[in-house]
Amino acid sequence: MTDRPRPLPLAPPPVHHETIGSYLNRLADANHLTIGHLSHLLGPSRQHRRVDNRVGYWTPDALRRLAVLTGRSPSSLVHAMPPLGSIDDPLRHHRSATEEVIEPRRRPACRLCMARRHVHGLVVRSTPHHEAVCHRHHRWLLGDEQHDLTLLPEVLRANLQHHRIVRRGTHPLTALAFIDARDRLTRWFTGERRGEPLRQRWNRRLEVLGEDPFGDPHCPSEPRIELATYPEVIVLTGLFASPHWRDHPQLPAETARRFGIADTQLAAGLVRKLPPSLRILEQGISPS
């Protein structure tokens, strides 16, 4: 394609860490274009989904054309959407197993924040796991429902602790510690045992969320389970990310103490045998 594009009549700015697909769809919507037509203006026509954030098919010319269409410099676009900065990177197709696991979550931005900034339409952002809460509006962001957390202050406090763990720790070890802790407690939640104090605690949080209009009342959705177990997940994340505790023989007892339950009420095997990825990273070796 050799013709130079013209600036679009309306060019809303991208939101920081907005996914490429989200921005392109908002740009098309603002100008009453199909996403296919906008994609054609950039280069080879593609159907960009809002969660798309890969640049394997992008060329430097496509980035320059997007800059012309929006009236923004390529550097400002890269600043808002960092994956665009890897267009010329010959290694962009090669991602380690760790990078695949800890890839930032792609979730709708806080709708109240977007309304406050007069940003219209659905905005999908690529955010790390610890950016789970909008503290300005007390909203849960790791799910489409964006629950109000006013009546769940322990979730707000847990997210502040999550931020402290990330600041003190080493990336990607802290991200892997969180993912492992989340997966273990999800398995505990969905297990066969009933009546433990933690399950009662989790059920209370689910009751605060109210009825799921699209879900099974007897089988909470994964996003709701993640919210309900989040405070305990962060307790476990802190222990797994700690060089002192992660291999300590008293880790189960310390976990139970921090959960506020008896040792005998801890799920069998919950904190035994940490995954090899955590041990490898602790030794300074990046797993492939």
Rank of each mutant, 00 (worst) to 15 (best):
H244W: 04
P276M: 09
T98C: 12
P12M: 11
G260T: 13
R64T: 14
A256N: 11
Y230M: 07
P7W: 04
H16L: 07
R184S: 14
G210T: 15
A241K: 07
P153C: 10
A67P: 04
G21R: 10
S76I: 15
H48M: 07
F178M: 03
P217L: 03
Y57G: 01
P287Q: 15
I20M: 14
D212Y: 04
H93N: 05
L42K: 13
L206A: 10
N31T: 03
S75K: 09
P12D: 09
L38E: 00
V271S: 08
R257Q: 13
E226P: 01
D88H: 03
D216S: 05
R106Q: 03
T237A: 13
L281N: 05
L42N: 10
H135I: 00
W202P: 10
H171Y: 04
H17Y: 11
G143V: 07
L173T: 04
F259W: 15
F240V: 01
G238W: 12
L156N: 12
V233T: 14
P13N: 08
A175N: 00
Q250A: 11
T19F: 06
H17I: 03
V208A: 14
E196K: 11
W140G: 09
R157W: 12
H16Q: 12
I102Q: 08
H137V: 00
I35K: 06
A132I: 08
T174R: 10
G269M: 14
L274C: 04
W58G: 01
F214E: 09
V101I: 09
D216Y: 12
H162L: 05
Q161R: 08
V208I: 13
V51E: 13
Y57R: 14
P153W: 12
C219D: 09
P213Y: 11
V68S: 06
G56H: 09
